[in-house]
Design a protein around this nucleic acid. Structure first.
Length: 607
RNA sequence: GGACUCGUAGCUCAGCUGGAUAGAGCGCUGCCCUCCGAAGGCAGAGGUCGAAGGUUCGAAUCCUUUCGAGUCCGCCA
């Protein structure tokens, strides 16, 4: 039997057997039938709850049904024995060789082993990172970037047709504030250009002074510069080089109109270049970058409003103040509202600011209309946990726009607390203890960052200990998994790097040690791990699987230390050596495959 | 006041969408290097799954209530 996923194969046979035993049951009665690795290895190789699940519908006692099912399953060619157990499980022991026969399957499929079909090639849009383009990426963005990227890879592996997307929040107050800061840097840059090019405005010199310039600028324009960082210095220089003094309004006031647009557009473009460089360093390269401002300019907002209005989901109304805690400056105000409550949200949500422009939510509705129009069957977002309160309204909007045909899943990524020397590192722009993504990658390396970010469930808070992620010990899962792969590669190199196709032909009868069989069993659970993790949108499961797999391999390696007959390469036993090399090659392949989902590079040797 | 995410071993966390006796790492205890694959390995102790009810053959998992932590709460994104 050559099957890609042994568990899926035996499950299908179980369902078929049940259907024969219970011909009157409808086909969907078997949906909850599972074939799983048993928790206790003494129970056998696989266990199914099939009899338990359908017993009630079949009006039979579970143990009796389990016995009948076991009898049928025992007759399968793959099955050595099948026994009813407990409240109605059936435990299966596979015929010798069936497990081992997975090794040539793995070797033949290579890193495609584990590719699934649950996605059914449905188009899914995975949107993640989506940081404001107002500065460099920092560690706060990092987790969402890694989780989103790994999740996208995971869905692709499980059979979805994936688009990786970044939504650029380039319309709104934050970006206006950024433009003002860039304008200030531009004035500074102008002063360093030949005097003839600088307009004769006395204020200019004061704004651009190195010591009090910022305060003077803020006072004169009545703004607080939110983005004072040095990273805007080159932007100011670029503006000065390209436009000279042409962007300074006559009389030296606040730039507006085309001049402001130019400043903003150049600045945002520069920031996006920088962000994409940062993301590339992290190994994140998205397919599509959608600009909020471009959507607004294209009239997507009005179009989305029209869609909702046509369905009677928009009205003018006044919201109640939040119960219990009324904001100080609360006053009732008539607003354009979306009937989010019809789709499970707590309150209806405003779409327009008082100046007539769209709220962030309204613009994001336009963004989602854009996604739906592009034909995505499913939408997935990775957001920071601070956006948790935003989930229901967005799901309501997508449900409304798509008439409940397109599901939106939101994965919330909790805050990462960076720890160094046992002390939490406070993140503060003002105090300058602000860790950029680049700093982090420079310090511990891209692979360690990515792997570590996936060693927790996304919605669990996480400590990122800068010392531990580079530590070479068992405590560090990055090291532990990489070390297993390096050991595999070391063995294979020692054997002259045999081709996978050659090893796939090796007789495997000599693989009988419990540690060898445990490793093979683990390898056979890779396809179902991919499928379950993709359905749950939980890429961290891949990291845990790899950790377990590495553990099984290290156990085998260590057995070889005590018992030399268990070593992988034995000069006196060419047959056994080939069989073990096949096992080692399959292990390395699956580790590589898992690391690829995580976006981590497998290493050839530990240095 | 409400919403969302959590609460599992001393610590950090898994727990495969409701399954059998709840797991891993660290820490702790005890063993294991004259030599061969010890940046390690083997074994052990350690739990009323925050609490109380409920749903059913069966609950850490689902529902209700409650306690605690974090996040958020009309024109910030």
């Amino acid at each position: 039997m050559i099957e890609h996923d042994l568990f899926a194969a035996l499950r299908a046979r179980t369902v078929a057997a049940l259907a024969e035993l219970l011909p009157d049951l409808p086909g969907d009665a078997f949906a909850r039938v599972l074939m799983e690795p048993p928790r206790d290895p003494s129970h056998g190789d696989m266990a199914t709850n099939g009899a338990l699940v359908v017993a009630k519908l079949a009006k039979q006692a579970p143990p009796r049904l389990a016995a009948a099912l076991a009898e049928r399953l025992a007759a399968l060619p793959e099955v050595e024995s099948a026994a009813p157990a407990g409240p109605g499980f059936v435990n299966l022991r596979l015929r010798e060789g069936v497990l081992r026969a997975q090794l040539p399957v793995i070797l033949a499929e290579g890193t495609r082993y584990g590719d699934g079909s649950v996605g059914a090639r449905r188009k899914v849009d995975v949107e993640y990172v989506s940081a404001n383009p107002t500065g460099p990426m920092h560690v706060g963005h990092c987790r969402g970037a890694v989780v989103g990227d790994a999740l996208a890879n995971l869905l692709a592996k499980a059979g979805w047709d994936v688009t990786k997307e970044y939504y650029i929040n380039d319309a709104g107050a934050q970006v206006q504030a950024l433009a003002m800061a860039a304008y200030w840097r531009y004035l500074q840059a102008l002063l360093r250009t030949p005097a003839g090019a600088v307009p004769d405005a006395p204020a200019l010199r004061a704004f651009a002074a190195s010591d009090r310039g910022r305060e003077a600028f803020e006072q004169a324009f009545g703004v607080a510069l939110q983005y004072g960082g040095d990273y805007l210095v080159p932007v100011g220089e670029a503006l000065a080089a390209e436009h000279g003094a042409a962007l300074v309004p006559d009389g030296g006031g606040v730039p507006a109109g085309a001049a402001l647009d130019a400043i903003r557009d150049v600045t945002v473009a520069r920031m996006m270049v920088s962000i994409r460089e940062d993301l590339a360093m992290l190994g994140v390269e998205q397919d599509v970058f959608v600009s909020e401002a471009a959507l607004v300019r294209a009239g997507k907002l009005e179009q989305a409003e029209q869609v909702l209005a046509d369905r009677g989901l928009i009205y003018r109304g006044v919201l109640e103040p939040p119960r219990g805690k009324t904001p100080e400056d609360w006053e009732p105000r008539e607003q354009t509202l979306f009937r989010a409550t019809q789709f499970g949200d707590e309150v209806d949500r405003p779409l327009r600011k008082s100046d007539g422009s769209g709220t962030y939510f309204a613009n994001d509705i336009a963004n989602h209309l854009h996604k739906i129009e592009r034909g995505f069957a499913e939408l997935v977002h990775v957001w920071g946990a601070d956006h948790g309160g935003y989930v229901k309204r967005m799901q309501a909007a997508v449900a409304a726009l798509s008439s409940n045909t397109v599901p939106l899943d939101v994965v919330l990524a909790q805050i990462v607390h960076v720890v160094k020397d046992g002390q939490p590192v406070r993140m503060s722009k003002r105090a300058g203890t602000y860790i950029t993504l680049r700093d982090l990658i420079d310090e511990v390396g891209r692979d360690a960052v990515r792997f570590t970010m996936l060693t927790r469930k996304a919605d669990a808070q996480m400590e990122f200990d800068l010392d531990k992620v580079v530590e070479q010990s068992r405590e560090n899962p990055v090291f532990y998994v990489q070390y297993a792969h390096a050991r595999c590669r070391s063995v294979l190199r020692g054997a002259g790097d045999p081709a996978a196709g050659d090893l796939a032909l090796a007789p495997l009868d000599s693989l009988v040690d419990p540690a060898e069989l445990a490793l093979i069993r683990r390898l056979t659970t890779w396809p179902r791990t991919v499928e379950a993790a993709a359905l749950a949108r939980e890429p961290h499961r891949i990291a845990f699987f790899l950790h377990d797999l590495a553990g099984d391999f290290h156990v085998l390696w260590n057995r070889g230390r005590e018992d030399t007959t268990l070593r992988f390469i034995r000069e006196d036993e060419p047959q056994a050596t080939r069989a073990r090399l096949a096992l080692v090659a399959a292990t390395a392949t699956v580790i590589r495959s898992g690391l690829a989902v995580m976006g981590v590079t497998p290493v050839e040797e530990m240095r």
